[in-house]
Design a binder for these strands. Sequence first.
DNA 1: GCCTTATGTTCAC
DNA 2: TGAACCTAAGGCT
Length: 268
Amino acid sequence: MPEGHALHRLARRHDEQFGGHPVRVSSPQGRFAAAAAELDGAVLERAEAHGKHLFHVYAAGTVHVHLGLYGAFTEFPLPAEEPRGQVRMRLVGPRGGTDLRGPIACELLTQDEVDSLRGRLGPDPLRADADPEQAWQRIQRSRTSIAALLMDQKVLAGVGNVYRAEVLFRHGIPPHTPGRELGEQLWKLIWDDLVELMADGVRVGRIDTVRPEHEPEAMGRPAREDRHGGEVYVYRRAGAPCLVCGTPVSTEELSGRKLYWCPVCQAG
DNA sequence: GCCTTATGTTCAC
DNA sequence: TGAACCTAAGGCT
């Protein structure tokens, strides 16, 4: 489930499991073998996330992981079992181990390379050092839609297709509205809402965006779980009745990703 | 068992 | 704009 909340959750977990301990690092699949050999036995100082990027910090360098669409970590207890399938990176610490499969990136970087990578990312609602004003500056300078801007990791880091659809619904904003037309006040409200929603996602481990008064139980409908594991207003609900007004949810493809919105609740 | 789809990004054209 | 990356889950047969 790789939107920003999932990466922050992983960073926290890896910190607990491996932080401050020497770890065995290997690459059963071989594609990370050289770096793994270099790091094997080193102390994992800490793990942290910025947007959808995960970093494992060692004295010798930092492992940068991006899960992409398919990547996933799977934990296993000790003693470690034989790796199954294509395992790019295996970490084994004193309390257990984890296997990384199918990431889009798993590479050992220098501090300069990490700085340059992070310099290309916008502020992350889940980081204490994030400045929403920085995102607003970008939005103001662009003529593109708020839907496209929310997914642009240079504008802000960590929001994916689910949080995009849901935050726009929660604020009644038509997705094609040019971002700059929202105004700074409304942008701040959106940002604050993302901070809250995503922090909740880190806590719970899934994306829940439906307000208590709109939950199925409160609306007299049976409880429901979406495929991503939480409860949402519009994401992946094309054609289904809007949870608030009953209008069928609209969908459309925007630069290769599906957009979902309620044409009535988000009429502007 | 096969086909489609997906919470993402990069690169080639 | 489309393909590639490379994996899992769900729907269908």
